[in-house]
Design a protein around this nucleic acid. Structure first.
Lengths: 220, 220
DNA sequence: ACCTGAACACCGTTCAAGT
DNA sequence: ACCTGAACACCGTTCAAGT
């Protein structure tokens, strides 16, 4: 690569003056998401990220404490992309479903971060907080008792995380080949579906069961 | 460490003869699970594993193609530990619940492997196959149509994977602190629970909703 | 204040050499 | 057949030195 020594981003540099700062949290996060989206999270190394920003790996540590922190910036962004706006226009059950569907697709595209997101404290993550508040207040307006709101959110979230993995699992995950004799009932059950159909049915039927059951428990 | 050069495991070595083979798939897997359980999966490196076996890291590559393969051996073991035996003694709904509870606790102890397990093909994994066959045949005996079995299994699995993460999330994951003003409904909803109570309620209520809803869809 | 260059302590993996 | 020792191409991170 012939551009590896100096990448002048905007070219507005005046002689003798300090160059405009090129590294900010926003630009680092943007570049990291670009690298991760195009090459996968395995390729998101500090070296690759630095190169994408035209900078030395060590320079990143003037702005982030660690690679983990940069991943956390990405996680915040992702949670902001989860769409909870349906609670403003639709009934609670349809709104829950469209929130879960949006959540699942966002996680699918970044499933290396699902474990970290599942364990990420909400405090300090402004957009994440707003997303949860949208869901919680939507359910409350629909008559849900306070004590039923969080268990429903956590249950649906858990289901969404696992469903995102399933969406990225190999299509032949339940293919038995010559071992069909060893598990005949499983083989027959699998044969009742196409791989893509199974994924969607598992998600949609599970989501429907969760929303109905949790709503019934909430008395609405 | 003074024992790092030669660790004689059984001492039965005869002079001049080739020593009894110390590395097998079983022993490697045992050692790997021991290291991972005691020190976590972050500490499960080829060097640590080799040391625990009294061997050089390179020696492991005579038995496993890669670290990934060793992890797969562990994953097979874990699936064998998931208890599907309730289908032989209890009605389908109670059996599904006890299967899911066992599954969740096994995943909780090894949650670094959850993503890989969620995407692991069943072909070739004998114990995994037997586990699924137990669930599928249990549901069929209870009158479930073939086309309803796999969507139910996949949906409950997805829920279990996410619930395992939740079980290992920090207890203060929904603690808002001074940001309670920014998300008042969320704060009130969270305040209706203890952290431990929320986890268990989310799992048990979600599981109940899934089992009831999926069973109803199956017409049983 | 912020970046570079060099170094550190690790990774997983390969391979010629030994027995 | 199976293990060692040395090497390779990477990791994330630190830090003195420059501007």
């Amino acid at each position: 690569m012939s551009t590896s020594e100096h990448v002048e981003s905007d070219g507005q540099r005046r002689a003798g003056r300090p160059r405009t700062r090129i590294l900010t949290q926003k630009r680092i996060t943007d570049a990291a998401m670009r690298v991760a989206t195009h090459e996968g999270y395995d390729s998101l190394t500090m070296a690759k990220l630095a190169k994408a920003l035209g900078v030395t790996p060590a320079a990143l540590y003037n702005h982030a404490h660690s690679k983990r922190q940069i991943l956390r910036w990405i996680e915040d962004r992702l949670m902001a992309a989860v769409d909870a706006s349906a609670f403003e226009t639709e009934p609670w059950d349809a709104a829950l479903a469209s929130w879960a569907r949006s959540y699942r697709l966002v996680m699918k595209e970044h499933d290396s971060l699902v474990e970290a997101i599942a364990k990420m404290p909400v405090a300090g993550a402004t957009d994440t907080l707003a997303m949860y508040e949208g869901v919680a207040s939507g359910l409350r307006r629909a008559g849900w008792p306070d004590a039923n709101i969080m268990p429903a959110i956590v249950a649906i979230e858990s289901f969404v995380y696992g469903s995102a993995y399933d969406l990225n699992a190999p299509l032949d995950i339940f293919e038995l080949g010559d071992q069909a004799d060893a598990a005949p009932t499983l083989a027959a059950s699998v044969a009742a579906h196409t791989p893509l159909g199974l994924r969607e049915q598992a998600f949609e039927r599970g989501l429907d069961a969760l929303i109905r059951g949790l709503g019934a428990a909430a008395g609405v």
